[in-house]
Amino acid sequence: MRAPRLPDLERFPELHARWNRRTFIRSAAAGTALVALGGALYRLAGDDLTRQARAETRADGRRRLPPGQRVIRALRDMGGREGPGDARSFRLRVHGAVRTPFELDYAELLRLPQLEQAADVHCVTGWSVLGSVWKGVAVALLAEKAGVRAEARHVIFEAAHGYTTNVALAEATAPAAMVAYRMNGRPFPIQHGAPVRGLVPDLYFWKSAKWLTGIRFVVKDEPGYWEVRGYHNHADPWAEERYG
């Protein structure tokens, strides 16, 4: 008569001695702790940029790095439904509460007076990219060209597939806000809004709409895609206005 088969660990005592459950759990816990510690050390050691930025102050007296932000080297792909991405089909409609609504194609945009400046951007998810050089056309210039009516108070940045985001007129036409088509001398990759995106650097980055299609001046505020989904209507990074 055949002896009943024993589980592997009981048939091989040397294996049992090495790998009983307690040893396994202990090893797993130690391994996890080691990996976590290594990850934390790696992150701390590699975060010189953040430390350095925290020590800096902007010309307006605010700290260069808003609270709760960490500096990374390049824009992170945050998803979104991409627009067509090609310069040939690009059109920018400037309309709403203006005297002379108009539409620009890509070549016409490039023919307008250009603005090139370094700017920091801050994503609501906690990363910041500092000091990139952005090139484009100031929103203030487009506003002036369109003749914004005195009663307009807000700007709605319109983008592919109906995405919108709202910015107060004063902030959208601030000197740093622009319709950008180059970053660090390169065109935007499709995932970062090619060919043209908005840039409102002093607000969280979702206010800088990718795949821009229009700029609409409005009298009454119209919360945009993320704003109606629980994100803050204003989005000041220094006040940590992340969620409404």
């Binding site: 310069a87 040939r88 070549a107 490039l110």
Partner: peptide, 15 residues
């Protein structure tokens, strides 16, 4: 597509 100093060449899998 050509605009300003830029020349754009579009292929199916790259630009």
């Amino acid at each position: 597509y050509r605009a300003g100093d830029e020349l754009h060449l579009e292929y199916d899998d790259r630009k």
